[in-house]
Amino acid sequence: MNINNNANNQKKRSFIEAARQTQIVECAIETIASLGFAQASLAQIAKRAGISTGVISYHFKSKEALIGQVIEKVYTSGDSYMHPLVQSATSARDMLSVYIESNIAFMSAHKTYMLALLEIWSGIRPKEGKESFVFSLQEAAIHDLEQIFQFGQMNGEFRTFSPRVMAITIRQAIDGVPPQIMTNPELDLDAYAKELITLFQLATDQNVTL
C-alpha cells in the first residue's frame, strides 16, 4: 500500500469536497435571493449549480443545514472584510466610522448576500438550538461595537453611556439596510453611511451634553 498516494488522494478529495460545498452555498444564496426563501428548494439550488439534489444531500444532511451554512457564510465574509479595516484605525472615533462605513460598503458590494439573508429571516422558523446559533453571530457583532465604545470611554473620546445600548442601536440602524436594498435599489448607500457616521459621532461625542 502506498501511504503517500493515499494521503495525496485524501487531500485532493477534501479540496474538491470543500470547493463543491462552497459552490453549493453560493448557488443557494443566489437562488434564495432571486426566487425567495420559500421557493428555493434543493431542486432549484441543484439546477442552478448544475448538479443533482443527491450531490447536495451528500454534502449537507438537510436544507436546514445548508441554510445554516449560508447564514454563516454571509456573516463570516462580512467580518473578514471589516475586521482588518477597523483594526487599522488608531482611535475609537475612527474605529466607529470605519465600522459603519465598511459594514455598509460590504452590503453594497454583496447585495445578493443581503437579499438572501433578508429572505431567510423572513421565511425561516428556527428549530430548537438554531436560535442560539443566530444569536451568537448577532452577539459577536454587538460585542465588537461594545469594545470600541469601552475603548473610547476609557481614553476620553466618548461620553458616558451604555456601550451595549449604543451597540444595539447602531446594529439596528445598519441592519435596516437590506430591506432598503430590496425596496429602494437606487438608494445611495455611501450617503447613507456618511449620515449614520455623523449621527453616531454626535451621539457619542464627549463634548455633547444630553
Rank of each mutant, 00 (worst) to 15 (best):
M1Q: 09
N2E: 15
I3K: 15
N5M: 15
N8R: 14
N9Y: 11
K11T: 09
R13S: 13
S14N: 14
I16S: 14
E17K: 13
Q21S: 11
Q21W: 00
I32G: 01
L42H: 03
K47H: 08
A49T: 03
G54Y: 09
G54P: 01
V55E: 12
Y58A: 07
F60S: 00
S62K: 00
A65V: 01
I67E: 04
S77H: 07
Q87V: 03
S88P: 01
S88A: 15
R93Q: 11
L96D: 02
S97Q: 06
S97P: 03
E101Y: 10
E101Q: 12
E101I: 03
S102Q: 10
I104Y: 09
F106H: 06
F106V: 00
S108D: 13
S108N: 13
A109L: 09
A109G: 03
A116D: 04
L117H: 10
E119S: 11
E119Q: 14
G123Q: 06
I124S: 09
R125E: 14
P126D: 12
K130M: 15
V134H: 02
V134L: 08
E139V: 00
E139H: 02
A140G: 02
A141F: 08
A141D: 02
I142M: 05
H143P: 00
D144G: 08
Q147E: 14
I148W: 04
F149R: 03
Q150M: 11
F151C: 12
N155T: 04
E157G: 00
R159M: 12
R159D: 11
T160K: 15
F161L: 11
R164N: 10
I168L: 15
I174S: 04
Q180D: 07
M182N: 11
T183Y: 13
T183I: 07
N184C: 12
E186S: 11
L189K: 14
D190C: 08
A193D: 08
K194Q: 11
K194N: 09
E195D: 12
T198Q: 11
L199C: 10
L199G: 07
Q201W: 12
L202E: 06
Q206G: 07
V208Y: 09
T209Q: 14
T209S: 14
